[in-house]
Write a protein that binds this DNA or RNA. Structure first.
Length: 870
RNA sequence: GCCCGCCUGGCGGAAUGGUAGACGCAGCGGACUUAAAAUCCGCGGCUUUCGGGCGUGCCGGUUCGAGUCCGGCGGUGGGCACCA
């Protein structure tokens, strides 16, 4: 047992060697349609954007997925675990602008670099199924799916208000508008009415909401976020007749959740983009100026937060369905959103804070119509705070005396009776605008013909390929400026026509890739027999930042695919796990510059200095790794120094995977030491191959119990995503093996089977550690003489007899306070146990002079004596 | 403003309502070494008259027994936010 002669584990030799072995054996390859008897399991991590380098977030994501994949494979499942690239997007175009490299080239180089890095991690991926969304092979299929959705009426072209960047000449997503300015150009963003392609996600709003209840293996908070985003609300539409029609408009329709407060109406307000506002602006310069100003205000959050409620009285009036003869003014108001409801509201100042602020500012009446519960009618007035809660209706004609709840139903019934409105559900969810004025995306397969209108590209002409000869020297969309690409013959009439030059939002690409992975080389976009065999994804893993958009779009598209008959499931992801971020300390030099961790030397007292010159460094917050703060650690360098297994092990060991993980050098070094320790423990058993002895001594028996209990404990931990607990149990097993070495080292050959038990224990350690540190596990098994690959081996089963304890420790309490412990055999009778418990020295002292009222015995756990003074 | 998490040693964390702090990191002590590194072993909430007392953000409740369940409060992080 001399440590000096034991060789160290050389991961630089072992890791590539085992990766080759797995690849040559094809351990992780699966077929599109597995045989009927195969139990399938689909593990998927959110596929990466090929930025050029993997980061620690990727390492965490793919390590988590790989543990699940390897574990499930060992449990006998046929596991689909693929990898691909979310390869379209703006950074490639930016690289083209800034460095003159073509987006396709830039992307391909990045993919090659990142693939190599991922392969060094030793992931159990079927690389033959790799896809990249920027390949015509993929996006052509996507075009076909879009046409299928078009035929189903789920895709349509429509005018809508968009964020328009007047400098870059492009539409911006809401996320790309920062403080009212374009994130790249810095130009003030305008609202503009444009023709855009939409996917009709709202058609599935009720289903997408109801489906959340079936997703029992999704985090509750993701479901809550989606439910809120879909945003069902119950209320009524109410039509108010205009006193005089304007520009052909005879009425204003509003949406409200409070039809009970209709008698508290003070005004009607419409959004600046509302047709009635446009009509008013047509012959009123002041109205036009107000509308134009609102448009410029844009959608910035800062503007909304600080913006006063502002309005413009159009001079128009409406009548009230319940109050004959009354007239109410119609205002244009900056706080009314065109996108929600009908783009118009009725103002009830007493019951809505915004309406109240508005009424107070412009001197509009504030009739009180809800008496809050517990308030007296006498002297009740509305101050500067609206009463939004429940109460009793007053000053409300036929609704007087009803509760707000009853009033809603009665008011809706009355509206429906007189034809002035009806009860409706309203949804916050809006249709998904997918048009982007970008080059590096999937072309929308449509053609605009002067005679025929919008015509779909015939299927046999797919894919509509991106042209390669494009220039990025001007802002705007290069496809639009290309000399020939967009000019085609109309498929319907043959006349000269033009292609749609918009490309798809990249979220479209990631809304069906999981289905393509099931049959990635099929001629059809999706092979139903393959998709039905694998889908839905059993375990999807990724960051919480995709809680709404990506996951909601994918749920919608999967439903559309089902309607097209391509898949059977409506839900793409049966299980979802959202991992935490990887964080690190940040460092700042005296001049304020951020420093990379490798530039900084930490000392034991918590101080820090710069390696290059010893200058003092300020240690900043622990926060998400980001390039701007330079608090990043390069996975490639970590693997160079410690190996992939160490990186994987540390990431899994430190804390639960849903929480943020702080990467620390000390923690990584500790994990590395453990890899070496396991290897040394293995080496010490290499020479001890031999038959199982008929009987085991006490030390051997004890070690065997630890080993088999560890199987049960690690299995349970892995099933529950408690990887840090699985790691802890394996540390304990290693500790138990080391302890057995000490206790049994001097016994010579006849050691009561300890050498055999020890070898069994280290073998179990290798097999249990395999999902987490697959290379080391293979190396350990090989050293122990195993000829096969652990990657193909079954998960160990514990021997039931070894899980039953010989003796157990019971806590003994008096009045719920621990007074001592007793050792009992599992077969001991309750009477015997109570006798032993009350006799324990400390317990007896506590019981002295007391009368025992009640004896509680929880088998295997605790004995508690409830006592009173004698 | 609304919604949702989270709060346990120096740190990360563990704990089917049943011995709080497993396991790791950092620390301290010891062995080995000429020495160091590596390795191996050990210690560790606070307090105490050594019986015990107090300890899982705070206050209260349920229970024989609460980190765990319930009510309230505080702190903290995140999501949404003029959604009618």
């Amino acid at each position: 047992m001399n440590q000096d002669v034991l060789p160290a584990y050389d991961f630089r030799d072992a890791e590539p060697r085992w990766q080759r072995a797995w690849e040559e054996r094809g351990c992780f390859a699966v077929v599109d349609v597995p045989p009927a008897e195969a139990r399938t399991y689909y593990v998927l991590e959110m596929f990466p954007y090929p930025s050029g380098k993997i980061h620690m977030g990727h390492v965490r994501n793919y390590t988590l997925g790989d543990v699940v994949a390897r574990y499930k494979r060992a449990r006998g499942f046929t596991v689909l675990h693929p990898m691909g690239w979310d390869a379209f997007g703006l950074p490639a175009e930016n690289a083209a602008r800034e460095r003159g490299v073509h987006p396709a080239r830039w992307t391909a180089d990045n993919i090659a670099a990142m693939r190599a890095e991922l392969k060094r991690m030793g992931l159990s991926i079927d690389w033959a199924r790799e896809i990249a969304t920027c390949e015509p092979e993929y996006y052509g299929k996507q075009q076909a799916l879009f046409l299928a959705m078009f035929r189903l009426g789920l895709a349509e072209r429509r005018e809508s208000w968009v964020n328009w960047d007047p400098v870059d000449n492009t539409v911006l997503a809401n996320e790309q508008v920062i403080d009212g300015r374009g994130w790249r150009s810095g130009a003030l963003v305008e609202k503009k009415l444009l023709s855009q392609w939409f996917l009709r996600i709202t058609a599935y709003a009720p289903e997408l909401l109801a489906g959340l209840d079936t997703l029992t293996r999704w985090p509750e908070r993701v479901r809550l976020m989606q439910a809120r985003w879909i945003g069902r609300s119950d209320g009524a539409r109410v039509r108010f007749a205009l006193a005089e029609p304007v520009a052909g408009l005879a009425e204003v329709e509003v949406y409200t959740t409070r039809p009970d407060t209709l008698f508290g109406m003070s005004f009607v307000a419409v959004a600046p983009e509302h047709p009635l506002a446009a009509a008013a602006a047509a012959d009123d310069a002041a109205a036009a100026a107000f509308v134009a100003e609102c448009r410029r205000m844009g959608t910035s959050e800062a503007a909304i937060e600080t913006a006063e409620k502002r309005g413009y009285d159009t001079g128009l009036t409406v009548s009230h369905p319940f109050i004959p003869g009354a007239r109410f003014p119609v205002w244009i108001a900056n706080f009314v959103l065109m996108e929600y409801g009908t783009g118009a509201i009725f103002g009830c100042p007493c019951g809505d804070q915004r309406d109240l602020d508005f009424a107070r500012k412009y001197g509009l009446p504030v009739p009180p119509v809800v008496l809050p519960d517990g308030r007296e009618a006498a002297g009740f007035v509305i101050g500067d705070v609206a009463e939004t809660g429940a109460g009793t209706l007053i000053n409300s004609g036929f609704l007087d005396g009803l509760t707000t709840r009853e009033g809603k139903a009665r008011a809706i019934a009355a509206l429906e009776a007189c034809g002035a409105g009806e009860g409706v559900q309203n949804w916050r969810l809006r249709d998904w605008g997918v048009s982007r004025q970008r080059y590096w995306g999937c072309p929308i397969p449509m053609i605009h013909c002067a005679a025929c209108g919008v015509v779909a590209v015939p299927e046999e002409q797919l894919p509509v390929r991106l042209p390669e000869d494009v220039a990025f020297d001007q802002p705007g969309n290069p496809l639009d400026r290309h000399p020939s690409w967009k000019h085609v013959a109309c498929p319907a009439c043959g006349a000269a026509a033009v292609r749609e030059t918009d490309t798809f939002d990249t979220f479209v690409d990631s809304s069906w890739y999981f289905a393509r992975f099931c049959s990635p080389r099929a001629a059809a976009p999706i092979l139903p027999e393959a998709a039905d065999r694998w889908m839905p994804v059993d375990q999807y893993i990724g960051g919480i930042e995709h809680a709404i958009l990506h996951l909601l779009y994918a749920r919608f598209v999967t439903r559309a695919l089902r309607e097209a008959g391509l898949v059977q499931t409506g839900e793409p992801f049966a299980g979802l796990f959202t991992q935490g971020m990887v964080t690190h300390e940040s460092y700042r030099a005296a001049d304020g510059r951020w420093l990379y961790p490798e530039e900084v030397e930490r000392d034991a007292q918590g101080g820090a200095t710069r390696r290059s010159d010893g200058a003092a460094v300020t240690v900043g917050r622990i926060e998400a790794m980001s390039k701007s703060r330079r608090n990043t650690v390069d996975p490639g360098q970590i693997i160079d120094r410690y190996g992939a297994d160490t990186a994987r092990w540390f990431i899994l060991s430190d804390n639960p995977p849903e929480r943020d993980l702080e990467w620390t050098e000390a923690g990584a070094a500790g994990s590395y030491r453990f890899t070496q320790r396991l290897y040394r423990l293995t080496e010490a058993s290499v020479a001890d191959a031999g038959p199982r002895p008929p009987k085991f001594g006490a030390a051997a028996e004890a070690l065997r119990r630890v080993g088999h209990r560890t199987i049960a404990a690690v299995t349970e931990a892995l099933e529950g995503f408690a990887f840090n607990v699985a790691v802890a149990r394996l540390y304990e097993l290693a500790g138990a093996i080391a302890e057995a070495d000490r206790s049994g080292a001097d016994d010579g050959r006849d050691d009561g089977g300890l050498a055999w038990a020890r070898r069994e224990a280290i073998t179990l350690a290798a097999r249990l550690v395999c999902p987490m540190m697959p290379h080391l596990a293979e190396e350990m098994m090989a050293r122990l003489g195993y000829a096969g690959l652990l990657a193909e081996a079954a998960w160990p089963e514990p021997e039931a007899a070894l899980l039953v304890a010989h003796s157990m420790t019971l806590a003994v309490q008096v009045m719920g306070r621990l007074r001592g412990t007793i050792e009992v055999s599992p077969g001991a009778s309750e009477a015997e146990i109570l006798e032993r418990a009350s006799g324990e020295t400390n317990v007896a002292r506590a019981l002295a002079g007391m009368r025992i009222i009640k004896r509680i015995h929880v088998p295997g756990r605790v004995v508690n004596f409830v006592v009173a003074p004698a």
